[in-house]
Design a protein around this nucleic acid. Structure first.
Lengths: 217, 217
DNA sequence: GTATAAATTGACTGGTCAGTCAGTATGTTG
DNA sequence: CAACATACTGACTGACCAGTCAATTTATAC
């Protein structure tokens, strides 16, 4: 009986419920009794699977980070150029956040929180190291500015985290598409050694139109 | 006796202590008794100035956000062009975060936290609305890409928040300066309708060198 | 079927903590 | 001085909650 065993309905229910409640009410704002009740299990069951409440949120954080990292990587291997690869990652990021708003908000909230252990934060980071490699490749090829790769990655990650909520809050799918294109165009032009005046990521179909839906707000 | 009265040593001590403890240990992780003890006042005094613990963190959040907003604005009026103004804001942001790491981390941690009331979050946002106006001006002048201004501001804010910790973690002042220049160059090229290949913000002395200190890490 | 282990239950407890309150000190005003 | 208000104190309390544990059910092995 180990973690690989796929039949742990109650364990999964606890994790899923905790994700929602922690995001809505915070860590200490959510009693373990509430988690177990909502998950439909007894209080003891929670502590059977997770020694402490901290271990629960740590597991959750690791899981979500790992999922997100995997989501960002999908299809990157198929792309030929560094630019296309990075655009793919960007699109993946926005798509993942949009499809998993709960998980995205959980990460957002606990990314800088002291409830999650330092090691969990470090393990979480490790899933995004491939981005740094990608940036280094781009610099080597002369297609990305010769700036500090770690800095570029931080900006990239932070920007994607900044773009996503804006897109998630937009109901109209066309407007969403447009915002996504604009956001990615911004990022690519920030990175690019030879930035383009009017379009970006067009090889993969992401061409940021001037307008489209339109200025409001 | 009101909030304008400058002599409230104990109130100030409570706020300052709470800022540090909340950042280090989280909201529910910090008992009010610990705050009052560390601040050198009685438990009752804390509840004399703040009806509840929530009111304390709300006040704190508003105060820090307002301080940060004011810091970003300094000297912007003196600058002539939109580009110079935006670069000024960027430099101000990095300088403020570096000079006030405690406050920066507090904002970072509680920006997405449910402990801070919705209205406090809204009031906090309002201090940064001038940035959006700046971006609109730039678009009108044709110097900034005609993208959604709110989106551009979100990216700008998120990126600055992403750059700052990296710079704060760099001990060597020269390297710091370089990273700051690179970060601002990234942002400007993301925004600019006519991006520059090799430099940015040079009017105000922020020219991002190719290398300088160097790749390590 | 019997034995052994894993999974699950929920009443219970020991400790913690936000907030109270009755009282004291420190002005301020007439 | 008396009367009144503000500032401040710290022991106390009622509620709440993480984690325990003895007992029960379910699954697996022989």
């Amino acid at each position: 009986m180990n973690r690989m065993d796929p039949v742990h309905d109650k364990r999964d229910a606890i994790l899923e419920t905790a994700l929602v409640l922690f995001t809505e009410r915070g860590f200490y704002g959510t009693p373990t009794a509430m988690i177990s009740r909502e998950a439909g299990v007894a209080t003891g069951t929670l502590f059977f699977y997770f020694k402490t409440k901290e271990e629960l949120i740590d597991t959750l954080y690791r899981q979500v980070k790992s999922e997100a990292g995997a989501a960002l990587k999908t299809g990157v291997g198929e792309e030929q150029t560094v630019k296309a690869k990075i655009c793919r990652v960007g699109k993946n990021a926005i798509a993942w956040a949009t499809a998993n708003p709960g998980r995205f908000r959980f990460m957002e909230q606990f990314a800088h929180s002291p409830f999650v252990s330092t090691t969990a934060h470090e393990v979480g980071m490790s899933h995004f190291l491939f981005l740094q490699e990608l940036v280094r490749d781009g610099i080597r090829e002369g297609i990305i500015r010769d700036y500090d790769p770690a800095l570029l990655c931080s900006i990239l990650a932070a920007s994607l985290a900044g773009i996503s909520p804006r897109i998630m809050a937009t109901p109209d799918p066309e407007k969403r598409e447009l915002l996504g294109q604009q956001g990615l165009a911004f990022l690519w032009n920030g990175l690019a050694a030879r930035p383009e005046t009017d379009e970006s990521c067009n090889a993969t179909g992401v061409t940021a139109k001037r307008k489209g839906a339109d200025d409001h707000d």
